[in-house]
Design a binder for these strands. Sequence first.
DNA 1: ACCTTGATTCGACGTCTGTCGATACAGCCG
DNA 2: CGGCTGTATCGACAGACGTCGAATCAAGGT
Lengths: 121, 121
Amino acid sequence: MSKSEVEELPVPRGGDVVPCCPPITAGELSQADAERMAAMFKALSDPVRLRLFSKIASHPGGEACVCDIADVGVSQPTVSHHLKKLREAGLLTSERRGTWVYYQVAPSVVAGMAALLDVRD
Amino acid sequence: MSKSEVEELPVPRGGDVVPCCPPITAGELSQADAERMAAMFKALSDPVRLRLFSKIASHPGGEACVCDIADVGVSQPTVSHHLKKLREAGLLTSERRGTWVYYQVAPSVVAGMAALLDVRD
DNA sequence: ACCTTGATTCGACGTCTGTCGATACAGCCG
DNA sequence: CGGCTGTATCGACAGACGTCGAATCAAGGT
């Protein structure tokens, strides 16, 4: 087994919109859908991760170097740990360019979360 | 101190839209905003809570009796515990009518979460 | 080669969280 | 009143989580 670790969610790249789940008002979530979505919400359920995510999302192009966003009040290993969590949840992708590592938001995945929360009544 | 417990977020009722936070692409979240939003995402970060929430949201009128949604595979005290968490996060309100307790979704709060995740690029 | 800088992994620690059974509370109905 | 049903609280416990310092890996520069 070459990947016994936490399974990394596949991250769709490009402009394709991935309808992860119907709006939550459309019907009950299945057990499987609930677990997948819960994992994504859990990734954003920490203030540090939320700030890291917002720093990346608000950077031009939706991407940022770790060194640009590391100032969130915790140690640098902790920042790395949180970025890994966000990446494993499929909300971010990472790419090494020379000395630095750049993280990008996965827009379609985040849009899927927003679509789930469409509760207009 | 009459409420030394977990502080319950105020739940706006009625049709008024509450712009909790600007889209996450608009700029970095402040520490305080990050903590408030993280608390909401944390409330939806559990599969059981997500299924309870979806059952209520998909009920007509966005409200449901506990007895109608309690079948999610965990014990009744655990269901009650999760509903309390969702209520404390401001995502649900509760109301006792006779023997039964009805939970309703707080649409504007959920809409605020969705607005935060507006990451169109 | 070596050292420096950026980033990840490792190991440990205290805290928070989800779960349960037992118990208590709130209304209805005989 | 006394029992019954629906819901909430309590106390306990195992497992997950966030954090850190130390160590390791990756690229560049001198």
